[in-house]
């Protein structure tokens, strides 16, 4: 498949997947051909009335042959599993990157927010040779973001965040699309994935209309929704301080721990789901008050609080 004009592979990861695909196809192809050749040879040699010998098989043969190919198949398959699982595990490590793009899927479009706050619809611009992390959520049904050129996809779920990360290497314009059936115009949920040289990207990004970046927008919302009334450091209400919250292990009221990731914080805002140990459950929930985009901004602000602290402690 390498060099297949419709499937450019534009990252090291994609090339590695292609190699795996080709090797596995060759392996399974060999197994298939083995079966087909045997069937054809037997069909000709042992056609009814042919002179070939039908002498009885020795008794031991049946069992030994059977055990032989069972074990051989088992080990072949286990080997393939081991090989693929190794690749899966190494792909799990998320790169440390501050280049985060927020994606909100809704019937039937992709809303994209660049790290500097620039917004685009049905297009994702990224700089080449940079680790990029996509933080994705859905406004309505389940969608799935598919980047064929990078050989990756991930479902985009309502009510939680999923992530994709990659490092695209070859500049160019490719496609991305929705692969989880999402209703009438599912087939139109398709956009351009543009990889630019870092210089071009910087130029493009400067040319976008000026907007606040997400964290600053979030800081404004933090005050206007009244969050700061309790969560600001000087507040008299007994509410958790949000500095350094993101990414930490939080002890829960009912026992147990949870990692304060995007989904956790989102659930706290909208559903008031988890009560951290040592705090009274007094926070109101904001379901239907705060919309997806505002949650995204608030998240960016809360994350920035942790980044500040890390910076300060260093």
């Amino acid at each position: 498949m390498i060099g297949f004009s419709d499937v450019p592979e534009i990252s090291q990861y994609a090339s590695a997947i292609d190699v795996k695909f080709i090797v596995l196809t060759a392996l399974t192809g060999a197994m298939g051909i083995l079966v087909f050749v045997l069937v054809i040879v037997f069909s000709i040699r042992y056609r009814r009335g042919s002179p070939a010998s039908r002498a009885p098989l020795p008794r031991w043969m049946q069992r030994d042959v059977e055990i032989g190919w069972t074990v051989a198949t088992l080990f072949t398959f286990l080997f393939v599993f081991w090989w693929m699982a190794g690749a899966q595990l190494s792909a799990l490590a998320q790169p440390k990157t501050n280049f985060e793009i927020h994606i909100e899927a809704k019937q039937w479009m992709w809303k994209v927010e660049q790290p500097n706050g620039a917004r685009e619809i049905n297009a994702i611009h990224v700089p080449a040779n940079t680790d990029v992390r996509l933080i994705m959520t859905s406004d309505d049904v389940i969608h799935s973001l598919f980047l064929p050129a990078l050989r990756i996809k991930r479902d985009v779920l309502p009510g939680r965040y999923t992530y994709l990360w990659f490092k695209a290497q070859r500049p160019g314009t490719y496609n991305f699309m929705c692969t989880q059936f999402c209703g009438t115009d599912h087939a139109r949920m398709i956009g351009h994935f543009v990889v630019m040289t870092p210089e071009d990207y910087a130029r493009w990004s400067m040319a976008q209309p000026e907007t606040d970046d997400l964290a600053r927008e979030g800081a404004r919302l933090f005050v206007s929704f009244g969050c700061s009334g309790c969560h600001a450091p000087g507040s008299r209400v007994h509410a958790p301080d949000l500095h350094g919250l993101y990414g930490r292990q939080i002890p829960l009221d009912g026992g147990g721990f949870v990692t304060a990731d995007e989904t956790y914080i989102r659930d706290c805002i909208l559903l008031n789901k988890h009560i951290p140990a040592g705090y009274p459950p007094v926070m109101p929930h904001f379901q239907g008050v705060v919309n997806e985009e505002q949650v995204t901004s608030l998240l960016a602000y809360i994350r920035s609080l942790s980044a500040e602290q890390q910076g300060a402690s260093r």
């Binding site: 197994m31 045997l38 042992y46 009335g49 069972t70 088992l74 398959f77 599993f81």
Partner: peptide, 29 residues
């Protein structure tokens, strides 16, 4: 993923057995 590879083994065994059934048969089509 592991279990999916495991479930493929008995299917493969069946394919081999059908093929081997043809061996030394009197096949008509």
């Amino acid at each position: 993923s592991f279990l999916s590879f495991i479930v493929a083994v008995p299917s493969a065994i069946k394919v081999f057995n059908w093929t081997a059934t043809l061996y030394r048969g009197q096949i008509s089509f």
